[in-house]
């Protein structure tokens, strides 16, 4: 992947509710919504807290640490843009903050994948104005 040239992968279309999340990634920060009413952290970004129905939101920086909840290793190019990445591992991760994230995991051999494996988030600018998170092995908590 390079920050220049043609980027032919799918790109997000941020909404007013999610724009701070994407802007956070561009600054190398994983930001989560914290409810302004009850303090509950939620992900992915959305306008309303399902617990207290407040639409007040504070953005807090996540630690970036978590453990693997599940995963898949993709061998088929479902989009032309990912062909050169095959095979790649997508990990679902339980973050310390109590919500999950999904991202590509690098640096873990297939036979070492397991539920509970510690990982941490890194960031990569893939094109002008778009930074994506990815995961690498982390230290046990």
């Amino acid at each position: 992947m390079s920050a220049t040239g043609t980027y032919n992968k799918l790109v997000p279309e941020p909404t007013p509710h999610s724009a701070p999340y994407w802007e956070g990634l561009n600054r190398g920060k994983l930001l989560l919504q914290k409810c302004g009413g009850c303090g509950e952290i939620r992900h992915y970004p959305r306008p309303m807290c399902p617990s207290c129905h407040s639409m007040e939101v504070e953005w807090v920086e996540a630690s970036g640490r978590g453990v693997i909840h599940s995963w898949t290793i993709t061998h088929h190019a479902f989009h032309p843009g990912v062909r050169d990445d095959l095979p790649y591992t997508l990990a679902t991760v339980d973050l310390e903050e109590g919500v999950r994230m999904l991202a590509q995991l690098r640096g873990v051999p297939d036979d070492k994948l397991r539920i509970g494996l510690p990982v941490r988030v890194e960031f990569e600018t893939v094109k002008e104005g778009l930074t994506l998170p990815y995961l690498v092995p982390g230290e046990p908590a």
């Binding site: 992968k9 279309e13 999610s18 599940s70 995963w71 898949t72 479902f78 997508l90 778009l130």
Partner: peptide, 22 residues
């Protein structure tokens, strides 16, 4: 589409596979 497809999780096979793996 907004939060997972840009990371390479595009098709149902990829989105459902973690349920099976778990």
């Amino acid at each position: 589409g907004e939060f997972e497809m840009p990371l390479g999780a595009i098709a149902p096979a990829q989105l459902y596979a973690p349920m099976a793996r778990r």
